[in-house]
Simulated assay, not measured.
Amino acid sequence: MNSKIEEKRLTLFETAQKFGINARETIRCSQELDSLLNGCRGGLIQQTKDSGLNPAAQLQPDYTVGKKEAFS
C-alpha cells in the first residue's frame, strides 16, 4: 500500500507542476491520493479495533513530547 501512495504522491507532484494546482487533472490526482490515504487509515483503525486498542488514541499526536514543563 505504501508504494501505491508514494507513486500517487509523485504523480500528483508532477501533474501539479505540469498543469498547475487548480487543473482538473491535478485535483483528480489529489482526490485519488486522498482515497488511498483514507483506505490506509481505515485499515489502521480496523487493526487497532481488532486488537482492542482505542483507534482515536492511536491517531492523536502527543504534543507534550519534547516539551519542558512550565513549572518545575
Score class of each variant (00 low, 15 high):
residue 66 G to S: 14
residue 52 G to Y: 01
residue 51 S to N: 04
residue 42 G to V: 14
residue 39 G to V: 00
residue 44 L to N: 06
residue 16 A to I: 07
residue 32 E to F: 05
residue 54 N to W: 10
residue 41 R to E: 11
residue 54 N to V: 01
residue 61 P to Y: 00
residue 5 I to F: 04
residue 70 A to N: 13
residue 65 V to K: 04
residue 35 S to Q: 15
residue 6 E to Y: 01
residue 43 G to I: 01
residue 55 P to A: 02
residue 11 T to K: 15
residue 71 F to Y: 13
residue 58 Q to I: 11
residue 62 D to P: 10
residue 67 K to E: 14
residue 6 E to G: 10
residue 40 C to S: 11
residue 40 C to V: 14
residue 14 E to V: 06
residue 5 I to K: 01
residue 53 L to Q: 12
residue 43 G to C: 05
residue 4 K to N: 11
residue 69 E to W: 01
residue 36 L to N: 08
residue 25 E to D: 05
residue 35 S to D: 10
residue 27 I to K: 00
residue 48 T to G: 09
residue 50 D to H: 02
residue 23 A to W: 01
residue 14 E to R: 01
residue 9 R to G: 07
residue 65 V to M: 02
residue 58 Q to V: 13
residue 58 Q to C: 11
residue 28 R to I: 13
residue 29 C to F: 00
residue 68 K to T: 09
residue 1 M to P: 06
residue 59 L to E: 11
residue 47 Q to E: 13
residue 61 P to H: 08
residue 61 P to G: 02
residue 49 K to R: 13
residue 61 P to A: 03
residue 21 I to P: 02
residue 52 G to W: 00
residue 53 L to F: 06
residue 49 K to P: 00
residue 31 Q to H: 11
residue 55 P to K: 00
residue 38 N to L: 03
residue 20 G to M: 08
residue 39 G to Q: 09
residue 65 V to N: 02
residue 61 P to F: 04
residue 14 E to N: 05
residue 37 L to A: 13
residue 26 T to I: 08
residue 68 K to H: 12
residue 65 V to T: 09
residue 72 S to E: 14
residue 13 F to I: 04
residue 32 E to K: 03
residue 34 D to Q: 09
residue 44 L to S: 10
residue 33 L to D: 06
residue 9 R to V: 08
residue 46 Q to M: 10
residue 64 T to S: 09
residue 44 L to V: 02
residue 13 F to D: 09
residue 19 F to C: 07
residue 42 G to S: 13
residue 45 I to P: 06
residue 19 F to V: 06
residue 12 L to I: 11
residue 69 E to C: 00
residue 59 L to W: 01
residue 24 R to Q: 14
residue 8 K to R: 10
residue 20 G to D: 04
residue 50 D to N: 12
residue 3 S to L: 13
residue 22 N to W: 02
residue 58 Q to R: 10
residue 16 A to P: 00
